[in-house]
Design a protein around this nucleic acid. Sequence first.
DNA 1: CCTACTTGACTGCCTAAGCAACGATTGCCA
DNA 2: TGGCAATCGTTGCTTAGGCAGTCAAGTAGG
Lengths: 153, 153
Amino acid sequence: MAFYDSVPFEPDNSIGYQIKRAAQAMSAALEPVFADEGLTHAQWSVLVSLHFERGRTCAELARDQAHDKGAMTRLIDQMEEKGWVTRERATDDRRHVILALTDKGEAVAQRTRDRVAACWNGWLAGWEPEKVQQLLGDLRELRTSIEFAGACA
Amino acid sequence: MAFYDSVPFEPDNSIGYQIKRAAQAMSAALEPVFADEGLTHAQWSVLVSLHFERGRTCAELARDQAHDKGAMTRLIDQMEEKGWVTRERATDDRRHVILALTDKGEAVAQRTRDRVAACWNGWLAGWEPEKVQQLLGDLRELRTSIEFAGACA
DNA sequence: CCTACTTGACTGCCTAAGCAACGATTGCCA
DNA sequence: TGGCAATCGTTGCTTAGGCAGTCAAGTAGG
């Protein structure tokens, strides 16, 4: 029996609605942390992605964040102006532009990373670690399932 | 012991990152359903909110969706042009404009609601109902916790 | 009854994201 | 070797969202 045959598909029971609201709540709550460093949420995502070496080029970051390629170029422009990242044309494949954090950018990344982690620790204070792990696992599983199924009927 | 003291705070372990990616995946996967009816995702949210009577005015809907009030006005403009909703100035409190679905809007809401529910049923096909309920509960709990704590330190 | 304060709808302004297109570069394969 | 497709970074174009301000309408307190 399918889940939404047994439970009415209204917003309170909708994973989509709950995920959206949770995302907005955390984004709003984290905003002051980013504002302190003169960052936007999107810029912070890029900064942290570079910090954790999830990508070294514009296209890789765009894929990792499911962000538009063109928008990513402009995002990097801003961060280059602020002196957080550098661009360098790759020698092996001259299509790539290798991005790197400056010392200044790395410092900002570490500071905000720690503050954001502290926020999460506060929000999750009453949660058993197993419960957090399960939530993370469920979210990963859900995304995999959606991406595997592709566009719906 | 705080969760992110025992686990490194990198994207794969970050609830924020996982939530964001899950939200984008489902939004992308549902897009064809909305496109078939000439809807955008945001318009669909409004349509369904009216369908489930989660609000009757622009301000109520904006709050329910954590959407900008001004943007909501323009969203309703579009939906009024398409003949899905009607506006009527309230008599008791003349500040309010009462929104209502037309028959056409109601039909679109029902059709898309059923198709979206079917998508979700497919994505959650292998999940125990208890597991889905737990995910919903966790998401609600998380949001409550974030909103209660307010902006972080 | 008059004055503040709040609330709701609406309107410009600005920024950012999505989309399509382009040149440059590379890999592939006949 | 030469053409074909794919990838990367970049750039206009369009649109939608966030923000601040305005006006009308209601509320509370003196």
